[in-house]
Amino acid sequence: MIARRDVILGYVLLSLAALISLGPLLGVMILALGEPGRIGINLDIANATNFGNFADVWEKGDFGPAIRTSFIITSVVVVVSVILSVPAGYAIALMDFPGRSAIFALLILGILMPLESMIVPLFLDMRRFNLDNNYWSVILPQVGFSVAFGVFWMRAFFVQSARSLVEAAWIDGANSWQTLTRVLVPLARPQMLTLAVLFFVWNWNDFLLPLVMLSGSDLQTAPMALVTFEGARRTDFAYLGAASIITIIPVVIVFILLQRSFTRGILAGSIKE
C-alpha cells in the first residue's frame, strides 16, 4: 500500500515534468498558428488561429516527398539495425570466441566518435564507391552508427538475462541460433521495441548526415525540408513552427504505436530467486 502523501507527491512531480517537456511544445504550437509573415517571435495565444499555415508549409517545403524519403530511410535503418544488433549482442554477451573483447571495444568506439569528426572522410569514401546522393548514402552510415549502439544495448540485456535459461537451452540440445531465436528473443521483445523507438527518433531527426550525403541530389529528408524555413536573415517563425510540428508528428505516431506493444513482466515465473 502506497501512502496517500506519496501518491500526491508522485502526481506533483509528474505534472511538473510534463509541464517542463510540454511547455516548449505548446509554445511551438502557438507559434505555428500565428499570423504568417510577422517578424519576431509572437506567442499571442489570441491570434493562434491560422490553421492554414500547415497547408502552406506542406506545399512550400515540399513535405510530401520529404516525409516519404525520411520514412523510407528511417524504416530500413530501424529494421536492419535491430536485426543486426540482436544476434551481434548475443554473440558478444554469451558466445566464447577469440577477439570478442576487441570487437566489443571497436563497437564502443563507434558510439563514442561524434559524427562531425568523420562526416567529411565518410562522404569522400561513399563517393568513391558511388554511394553518394541516394538512399544508401544515408542508410548505410546510419545503420553503422545505430548498430554500434544496438549491440551495446542488446549485449547489456543478454548479459544480465538469466544465464541458467541459456544453459538450460544448450543442455536441451539447442544450438546458439535456436537459443537466441526461441528462448531469448521472445524475452527481449521489450528491449528490442525500445531500441526500435530510439533508432527511429534518432535517425528521423538526423540532419547533418542527410544534408551532406544528399547535397547533390533532389532527395531531401523532413528535417532538411524544415530548415528551408529558417532564413539567413529573417525567419518566418509561424511557418517554422508549423514545419516543426509536421516534422515531429510521425515520430510521435511511431512512439505511440510501438509503446502499445511493450509487454511487461514477461520474465515472471521463470526463475525462482
Binding site: A162, S164, L165, E167, A168, A169, W170, I171, D172, G173, A174, N175, Q178, R182, V183, P186, L187, I266, L267, A268, G269, S270, I271, K272, E273
Partner: peptide, 30 residues
C-alpha cells in the same frame, strides 16, 4: 547440446514464454 544429459537447475530455469507442455517438449522439438 550434444551430450544427451538432462539437468534440473536450482532456479528451475523454465522458459517463461512457453507453456508447461512447450517447456517439457522443447528439447524434443529441437
Amino acid at each position: 547440446k550434444d551430450r544427451d544429459v538432462a539437468m534440473v537447475f536450482q532456479n528451475y530455469a523454465l522458459y517463461p514464454q512457453m507453456t508447461v507442455a512447450q517447456n517439457m517438449g522443447f528439447a524434443l522439438k529441437v
